[in-house]
């Protein structure tokens, strides 16, 4: 970014926020601007609005094959996990009436079908971190497929379904409305 553009943006920033933005002279002035190519590699996160979801799609059936090959060794063939280990349970039956008994029952498994508020989180997390021994090794299509299979096994996506950006973006999970702002604020009241 040229110095001139930078300066114009400083003023834009000042006007916009009213916050004191460092002038050229105040700035430490180290570092460099990232290139678009660098950002494309680094910035792959997917938020609940799903706007940054990649192209591609995958079916539940394809996901079953991928899960058996690349995930089941740790998470179990049916995603049941290994109790007492970090090998998380990924799949559990939906809770009757989609109730949310976790506050009174710590033994309930917290899966994407019972607990997680956003389906985009599953895609984002698998892309970041799974499969554990080779994170980031799935193609986007494989990630859609395995995400679709986990969602379907949790009963929140049709078994004959195909997942893509549009579908994932609009998929509503049973527990979406369960999360509330932290009301602890110090003071004498225990919350």
């Amino acid at each position: 970014m040229s110095a001139r553009v930078g300066l114009v943006l400083v003023f834009a920033g000042l006007a916009a926020c009213g916050a004191p933005a460092a002038s050229n002279a105040d700035r430490v002035g180290v570092g460099r601007a990232p290139t678009a190519a660098e950002l494309a590699v680094l910035d792959r996160d997917v938020g609940p609005d799903g706007t940054s979801l990649p192209l591609g799609s995958g079916t539940v059936a394809e996901g079953a094959v991928i899960f058996a090959a690349k995930c089941a060794s740790c998470h179990g063939a049916r995603g049941e996990g290994v109790p007492g280990t970090p090998y998380a349970q990924l799949i559990a039956p939906r809770i009757a009436g989609d109730s949310f008994p976790f506050g009174t029952d710590p033994s309930r498994p917290k899966t994407v079908g019972t607990y997680w508020p956003h389906a985009t989180t599953l895609f984002d997390y698998i892309r970041r971190a799974m499969p554990f021994p080779a994170p980031g090794s799935l193609t986007d299509a494989e990630n859609y497929a395995v995400t679709a299979w986990i969602l379907a096994e949790n009963g929140v996506f049709p078994r004959d379904g195909t997942l893509d950006a549009a579908r994932l973006r609009t998929l509503k999970l049973p527990s979406a409305g369960r999360f509330v702002t932290d009301d602890r604020a110090g003071g004498p009241t225990i919350r």
Partner: peptide, 13 residues
């Protein structure tokens, strides 16, 4: 999770 069927999110402190 809380007993009233909700869960606190962004409970940082």
């Amino acid at each position: 999770p809380l007993k009233n069927g909700t869960a606190r999110i962004f409970s940082f402190e």
